[in-house]
Design a binder for these strands. Structure first.
Ligand SMILES: [Mn+2]
Ligand SMILES: [Mn+2]
Ligand SMILES: [Mn+2]
Ligand SMILES: [Mn+2]
Lengths: 218, 218
DNA sequence: TTATTATTTTTGGCTAACCAAAAAATTAAT
DNA sequence: ATTAATTTTTTGGTTAGCCAAAAATAATAA
């Protein structure tokens, strides 16, 4: 049985390699997992032994196909739980991530299946992130980061990549919620801050915020 | 933070001491927790340090009031989850215990509160066991073990104390389900086996089975 | 191309949970 | 009261995960 620790490593490697199995280095992992680099060195060695990653000394780590399969499964559990907590239990989208961080480690296929069914087998979680299916397949979408949006174009907000409570509260205040339609009014030359129209109101957004908002081109 | 291991010890001590803080010995704990007695000795020493139990060498262990409070809370989480799995997700009552064994360790008060609310703050789980409230109070009931039933009397099945899949399957087959009304037809002198009427059908039950069925006097 | 900085690895050590085997204590049987 | 059986404790040892400090590599800047 894979331990909770191993699962957290796999999931983190998956996220850091952006799905496409880019090489991940120890420092990144240490930062995300809140351990020191020495600990990561040990861990990735063991994951290599288990054939869940390929670890090349002093270079980096990437998931094997079986590691990737496992990671996708953890991501699925995490996002199913997030959706469930939000849609069925009435938790706010800023609360679900933390709880799902624990629930994701409960390994019971039937449980996840029942949860998913009850939700109508959703393909996206409350943050707009795709939920891998039982086989690990992820539904593609023509989403972009708002930082890549073009002037005058219209978009629909589909999700966020920063799940911090602070950020989510900020979005809610400006009614920049999932499903909201927006139009890009101006993009500042000198700092790339964006002004957009949302619910008839004008909102100005920093480049950093725009980087964390996922939108669909309309 | 109390570890999963500590929580399992507290819960097991609670169950073995039947709520009323009877002394529990190492052998019993070792058997239930599937570890060797030496491991239990170490563990109860630590629990004593933490002031969660009173451990008297070579004699036994009992919960302190803070240990008891904690145990009640774990039992509450366990039974809320069992009820939720059965009532909201459609799991069979023979499936829920195993899953709840894991879910019970997720410590998030708001989560349990939401689950409980959604269920209408139930006082009994699908096995008929009482669910302690937030303060640890358990609702009393005039339940008896079927092995204590009297001839000609009528009862309503309220729960079971043996949660094994085999036993629950057996009960289901004979329609001895929660809520069923029964009448005691005969009690054999020589082996205490019981014949009862349930759903117009006659069912014969071993003393061992009767010991594990909880019923309410009608 | 050195020198400086950042990252990675090694080494030694720690704690929580476990087990096996032997010794000690308790309980039950004769 | 002895003996035998059971339970408990002690001692020594293991593994998973972690950290701190030092040594080795790799990357960047001068
Ligand atoms: Mn999340
Ligand atoms: Mn996690
Ligand atoms: Mn149970
Ligand atoms: Mn448990």
């Amino acid at each position: 049985m894979q331990s909770e620790t191993i699962e957290n490593y796999l999931k983190t490697i998956y996220h850091l390699s952006a799905g496409n199995s880019t090489i991940v280095n120890n420092k990144q992992l240490a930062d995300k997992l809140k351990v020191i680099p020495a600990t990561v060195t040990e861990a990735v060695k063991k994951l290599h032994e288990l054939k869940l990653v390929i670890y090349e000394k002093s270079y980096g780590t990437r998931l094997t196909s079986s590691g990737s399969k496992m990671a996708l499964n953890i991501v699925r559990r995490h996002r199913i739980w997030e959706t469930y907590l939000a849609n069925e239990l009435g938790f706010g989208w800023d609360e679900v991530h933390e709880i799902a961080e624990e629930l994701e480690h409960i390994k019971n296929d039937k449980l996840i299946k029942k949860l998913s069914e009850k939700l109508g087998n959703p393909s996206f979680d409350p943050h707009g992130d795709p939920i891998p299916d039982e086989k690990g397949k992820i539904q593609k979408s023509n989403f972009i980061k708002l930082s890549e949006a073009k002037l005058k174009n219209s978009y629909k907000i589909m999700g966020v990549t920063d799940h911090s409570t602070a950020f989510l509260k900020y979005l809610e205040k400006h009614q920049l919620i999932i499903g909201a339609s927006i139009n890009i009014k101006t993009i500042e030359e000198f700092d790339n801050s964006i002004t957009l129209i949302c619910q008839k109101k004008e909102v100005s957004i920093s480049p950093k915020a725009a980087e964390s908002i996922i939108a669909e081109t309309l």
